[in-house]
Write a protein that binds this DNA or RNA. Sequence first.
DNA 1: TAGAATTTGTTCGTATGTATG
DNA 2: CCATACATACGAACAAATTCT
Lengths: 237, 237
Amino acid sequence: MDWEPGLSIWKQIEKQLLADIAEGVFSPGDKMPTEMELVRRFGVNRHTVRRAMSALVDTNVVRVEQGRGAFVQEQILDYPLGSKTRFSQIVSGRHRLPDKRLISSEVLKASVTVAQFLDVKPGTRVIELFSVSEADGVPLAVATSYLPAARFDGIVEIFTETKSLTEALKRFGIDDYSRKTTRISAALPSSRVASLLKQVKNRPVISTESVDVDSAGVPIEYGVTAFSSDRVQLIVE
Amino acid sequence: MDWEPGLSIWKQIEKQLLADIAEGVFSPGDKMPTEMELVRRFGVNRHTVRRAMSALVDTNVVRVEQGRGAFVQEQILDYPLGSKTRFSQIVSGRHRLPDKRLISSEVLKASVTVAQFLDVKPGTRVIELFSVSEADGVPLAVATSYLPAARFDGIVEIFTETKSLTEALKRFGIDDYSRKTTRISAALPSSRVASLLKQVKNRPVISTESVDVDSAGVPIEYGVTAFSSDRVQLIVE
DNA sequence: TAGAATTTGTTCGTATGTATG
DNA sequence: CCATACATACGAACAAATTCT
């Protein structure tokens, strides 16, 4: 590589890497070359490469993980927390293709916690849905949802078919439902969740606990969701 | 320890540990005895102890960290995210003593990000406040706030004295301000933040970015806050 | 900063008591 | 009485994360 005079070398390297990313040489989520590889490619000192990378980190273009490498930052999805926000609407509103895959489902007896949120007696039969939400094939969140089994018998099949909880609920006469409360925390994912999110175990997730109610205010769904903190940001207006 | 017939051993151990915590033998934040110590104390197999601990984890009484031990869960503060929520009100409303300590302050030129949120030109002089918020002496959050220096000259002294941003702003004629937007993410804390929060580096924090505006809608403060995810939960209604 | 020691997490296997049909 | 299923309890070994030296 030959250097233009007048512009510092690290800025030229930054520009070149930015161009590589823009052209798709490195795609969002991809691992960037190691510092040593870049040293060889550009024929400069490691410090110079690091100066360029640091600029890319500051502008949020790449993210560096100690001991693992640098990665092209995925486009962070702003997820507004309103009473009527729907996953598929948010994602498709950003011109990305939403998908919600059911991983497993089960009918079981409500634990004390679940019963409390759904406002039913502990031991009542509930449907547990475990699903992954994706945008353009990239997993954004994994969710565990609980619905009263008596009211929503057969919802699993409809959910699998339509890939949308909103759609499935419509078949049960629920045209309108809304978010009652959301509790937000942060945690490290379990191995299972990390693997479904295709992320490392020690990158944190944003964890939410929420209750949806129908138009009469009756709880219809209680869910715990883990959002990849590298790919989603929650917004409260 | 002698076992009552009719109740499984692990449930009796759970009950005993719960009593210990209730009596203050182990206080919130304290480290519980190791599994091996409990094995010796109760004279049972490690699995049996683990079964009891797992029940306490499920009911959110203790929290277990691999390689470190089990800890009595601190009382988690619910922090509602409304447009007018104030830290001191929330904390004292829970009958805990709020305190906000200024760690450092500086006047510097606004970066592109800060300028954008405060709706000023990059390079405009802004005041940077770095503070720790505590309840009953336990740190809950560390915040970095930016305010336009021209409008709030001398606010540092008032803030130091009153320990409240709301109070300090009143002296500048701002009786009413409100939260415009809050962006929520999760991250691992820097060493500095972890140490100020008195928590380990690899427990995640809830990270928020927010803008406060005066009654005319003019931005007066932009802030980045890191909440200890073990001690605070954000609530959206 | 490299390795040992400590502590929790997971997965085998074995045995026993209890409820069900 | 027997077969089966399930929860409980113990034992051993190894994996993974953290802390100590």
